[in-house]
Design a protein around this nucleic acid. Structure first.
Lengths: 213, 213
DNA sequence: GCAAGGTGTCACCGATCGGTGACTATAGTT
DNA sequence: AACTATAGTCACCGATCGGTGACACCTTGC
């Protein structure tokens, strides 16, 4: 139509996000993307070598995972001085708050739970890198700890991610309201409850590596 | 072929379970069920009035959720005398162990996370009833408690269910091994860690940390 | 003017999906 | 034997899926 390859490519990329946001990943096919973009589907093959590549480009172009700064609202130095359990709580709660505002990321996470493709693999890679970075920068002492707080953190993240996924279609899970702010506040409190354990020697007043740094 | 309606119906019901177990819910369609059962697909419409009804019958015929006795291995009386946090831990851990051995239930849970149909609704109903029964029979005092242990329980169940779902396709999530017994033992320990909190008072007398011994 | 190459359009392919109408074959009843 | 109800078979429908070949259009360089 307009004889503008760049614009056509962008319309295709945008169409992916639009379909994910409005109809969900199950509706995301070659024909739907082309139709939404108002572009012939053959261009998906010409310009992106197929749908998987288009999904990969879309995944790399978007902002699907919060930065470390967004998750750790306080500065990193202050967090490093906290005991391990408090650091875990900060990260998990921060991730919780950040992901709640990312419906497209939740959609991709739902997809990832069910099948693998170029887009879910891209997101999985980003997330894994992110986790490694967070651990190496703020939780180097986790291995010394006698309790497996990293496993607890992953379990809690898995838990609220599952609830976020379910909230797309269901209103309730296990007595938890998934559509109201009060419901999510309850979940938030439960996360903090799971992390904050005085018995673990993890109070803010008692930093665990006050030894000699 | 054999002119035996009962047998044909049973073959169709069995085919649903077989497809779920071998190819996953995404492969479960009218044609696949009929082909697997070795029966013409028109019989699905005649005998069950369509696939949704067949799925409902399959869901009601199967054993997709553990009984309360299976989850609470000790007798219920002994559990009632435990503090609330210990009861929550017992139930969550019990459910965790029970669901790990139910691949078809995990498959339906994965399906349920993504879309709704007669089978997932059946399972959801069974699960909700089950949860209500457990709460009313063993956790009537939860409302009096100052901490929301029921929300914590649902969060933990959501967490390991998500990990079970992911384990169908992925080997790792957040540093957790999803294919080895050691990995699942780590998750199990993390669940117990989230539940057992001396700071919450009324803790289980865990023999290891008991002061009298 | 002319050829070449990139851009977009269109028609079509085979496969598969859920769904249905028309048929045959068998068993039981009278 | 004739009739009826049911079990099972078969062919086909329209829609949609991913994928491709052929062609028209426009810009650029010669």
């Amino acid at each position: 139509m307009n004889r503008d390859r760049q614009q056509s490519e962008q319309r295709l990329i945008d169409a992916v996000g639009q379909i994910l946001a409005t109809e969900g990943f199950s509706a995301l096919g070659i024909n739907a993307v082309a139709r939404t973009a108002g572009v012939d589907k053959v261009l998906i093959y010409r310009y992106f070598d197929g749908l998987p590549d288009l999904l990969r480009v879309y995944g790399e172009s978007g902002d699907f995972w919060p930065s470390m700064d967004e998750v750790l609202d306080r500065d990193v130095e202050a967090i490093r001085s906290l005991p391990l359990a408090a650091r875990v709580e900060t990260v998990v709660i921060g991730l919780f708050d950040a992901l709640r505002n990312r419906p497209q990321t939740i959609e991709i996470l739902a997809w990832e739970a069910v099948e693998q493709n170029a887009l879910t693999e891209t997101l999985a890679g980003i997330r894994e890198q992110w986790a490694q970075k967070v651990i190496s920068e703020t939780m180097t002492d986790a291995a010394d700890h006698d309790q497996d707080l990293l496993a607890l953190a992953s379990l809690l993240v898995a838990g609220f991610q599952y609830l976020l996924i379910r909230s797309r279609r269901s209103a309730i899970y296990g007595g938890l309201e998934l559509t109201t702010d009060q419901g999510w506040e309850r979940i938030r409190t439960a996360i903090r409850l799971a992390c904050s354990d005085p018995g673990r020697g993890a109070t803010v007043a008692d930093p665990i590596f006050s030894r000699e740094d």
